[in-house]
């Protein structure tokens, strides 16, 4: 589904990603972790070409992301993305947030889009908030809306970039619950997160990044059982203390 082959990226002379290679198969849940500044966000943004990269290739469902002539908006519409800071559109109501791209990108009728939006709001437990504005919702609620907004496009896979790290602790679980449910339904997911409980529960594989490199790429059991690199051991001991 997602193939990342030897991707390297530089900001000026600073190398952010160094020959990153991995893949996410259909139905697979892959968790990406690593210290701050290790390039996790950059890597996941390369997957749907929100960030350009200079070397290597990313292929989604047979389409090369970086190739000239790729219809990027079309490709992105099939890849859902959830951001650390939600990025709901503050000038639109919750239901408008969910219907906008359905209508403008997928050319759905306003009515069909609204039905789809309401169904997804129900799924994340926020039907009552359909006509409110993002600023009137709590962080956890906003992030659930953001997930629903991505799902409204019927994506073939979902990317998450630290979806819970901007949330107050008591709101983390309501978001993780939605993600766990999604994973259990067989959604293909690539999640940057430090929620190791989530990784243990639903991940198939865990990727550990450091200084722009993929240091570990192992099945969940191998990763938690016997991480091979010194850096991964150190990192795990740090975050598992919390």
């Amino acid at each position: 589904m997602i193939e990342i082959k030897n991707v390297s990226k530089w900001y000026g002379s600073f190398q952010v990603l160094t020959k990153c290679s991995t893949s996410v198969k259909k139905g697979e849940v892959v968790v990406v972790c690593g210290p701050s500044g290790s390039g996790k966000s950059t890597l996941i943004k390369c997957v749907n070409a929100l960030e350009p990269f200079q070397e290597g290739e990313v292929v989604i469902d047979g389409t090369s992301v970086g190739a000239a002539g790729t219809d990027l908006p079309r490709l992105r519409s099939k890849v859902g993305m959830v951001f650390q800071h939600f990025e709901l559109f503050p000038h639109l109501s919750i239901i408008e947030n969910l219907t906008l791209a359905q209508v403008k990108v997928l050319n759905r009728s306003a009515e069909a889009a609204r039905d789809k939006g309401l169904a997804l709001l129900e799924r994340v437990g926020l039907t009552a908030h359909a006509d409110k504005f993002p600023g009137q919702l709590s962080g956890g609620q906003q992030q659930r809306v953001a997930i629903a907004r991505a799902l409204a496009m019927d994506p073939m896979c979902m990317l998450f970039d630290e979806p819970t790290s901007a949330l107050d602790p008591e709101m983390i679980n309501e978001v993780l619950d939605v993600m766990v449910q999604l994973a259990q339904e067989g959604m293909t997911m690539m999640c940057v997160t430090h929620e190791m409980g989530f990784a243990r529960k639903v991940a198939h594989r865990v990727i550990f990044m450091d200084k722009g490199e993929i240091v570990e790429d192992a099945t969940k059991d191998d990763f938690f059982g016997k991480p091979r690199s010194e850096r991964a051991v150190q990192f795990l001991s740090k975050i598992l203390q919390h």
Partner: peptide, 15 residues
Amino acid sequence: VARGQVYAGYALGLT
């Protein structure tokens, strides 16, 4: 307007 808003628009497939 935060850069993330542009990312969010692109990520949904908007031009």
